[in-house]
């Protein structure tokens, strides 16, 4: 069952095309990642899905509603965490939940939400006194107040330290495990790879790839790398005839062997036959970052 259907969405801001042509569907109960560099059109796409922007072309349906004409009914049934959103600095945590609860026809009690999201001790703290991670957890709690069927999370972990990021990832999985559909918008490729069941990679207002993270990585072909530091007298080109090797790259003294199959074993055997045992030799798996690079010729983060 499709929870979201987007067909040929287009959105212009004056002369700037934010979204050129985007189509995708989201299934019930999945974490659907929308990834791409800043300015790719991710946020505009989400803003159209929640009825904040009027599309210039194409059609959008969320839970069977047209977000433009049925915004109020739709928002009763979705939860939203937005980039650049806030509550007043002097508002207390419990006041925010208490107030937002009156905006919805159907809500879950907010005290257990505070417990669940580790904010019970902060219930009387004002918004300005919360850490970045606590603010994000409060926004998640606000997004879950109405027991939504679909939860939109836009750049959830931007600005968080690594520990808070990992805690937030667990939180997103917990939301999905409650049977909710999650739309996860992020410019962090590792986040999408870690969390998403399926990923749409967006660049310059278009979907350039859409699959499971593993499917996208497998599509790269040679998807493993072995990396080590060279030494004098060693010629990396000696490794080229090995089974599974597709490419050999040198970055200064670093040698990166691209390939597939039993690449690591083959490389190690060949090196040991030359009595060369690099201590820093390790194997790296290709990731979504590599997928983006191979699709667009650019890295996501500049």
């Amino acid at each position: 069952m499709n929870v979201i259907e987007v067909q040929h969405l287009r959105k212009q801001y004056g002369a700037v095309t934010a979204v050129a042509d985007i189509s995708f569907t989201v299934k019930k109960g999945e974490i659907f990642g929308i990834v791409g560099p800043n300015g790719a059109g991710k946020t505009t796409t989400v803003e159209t899905l929640i009825g904040l922007r009027k599309p210039d072309g194409g059609t959008v349906q969320v839970l069977g509603f047209n977000p433009q004409t049925d915004a109020s009914e739709l928002r009763q049934r979705i939860g939203i965490q937005l980039q650049q959103a806030a509550i007043p600095n002097r508002m207390k945590v419990w006041e925010a939940l208490d107030m937002y609860a009156t905006f919805y026809d159907h809500t879950v009690p907010w005290e257990p939400l505070l417990e669940q999201w580790g904010l019970a001790e902060k219930r009387n703290a004002t918004f300005s006194k919360l850490s970045g991670g606590q603010k994000q957890r409060l926004f998640i709690a606000l997004a879950l107040l109405n027991d939504p069927e679909v939860v939109f999370l836009d750049e959830l972990t931007t600005g968080l330290d690594p520990q808070a990021r990992h805690a937030t990832w667990d939180a997103v999985r917990a939301i999905r495990d409650q049977g909710k559909t999650v739309i996860l918008v992020t410019h962090f490729m590792d986040e999408a790879q870690e969390l998403a069941d399926r990923v749409a990679i967006i660049d310059k207002g278009q979907v350039v790839a859409l699959d499971t993270p593993q499917g996208l990585i497998d599509g790269l072909g040679g998807n493993n790398r072995v990396r080590f530091t060279s030494q004098n007298g060693f010629n990396p080109e000696d490794l080229r005839p090995l089974s599974g090797v597709t490419q050999i790259e040198q970055q200064g003294k670093q040698v990166i062997v691209h390939g597939n199959g039993a690449l690591l074993v083959n490389v190690v055997l060949a090196l040991s036959q030359q009595n060369f045992i690099p201590t820093d030799l390790h194997s790296e798996r290709a990731n979504l970052e590599d997928v983006f690079l191979s699709l667009t010729g650019r890295t996501v983060r500049v």
Binding site: S72, R75, L82, A85, I87, Y100, F103
Partner: peptide
């Protein structure tokens, strides 16, 4: 703050 309120019903 207005943006957050705007996406409620």
């Amino acid at each position: 703050i207005l943006r957050r309120l705007q996406v409620t019903p």
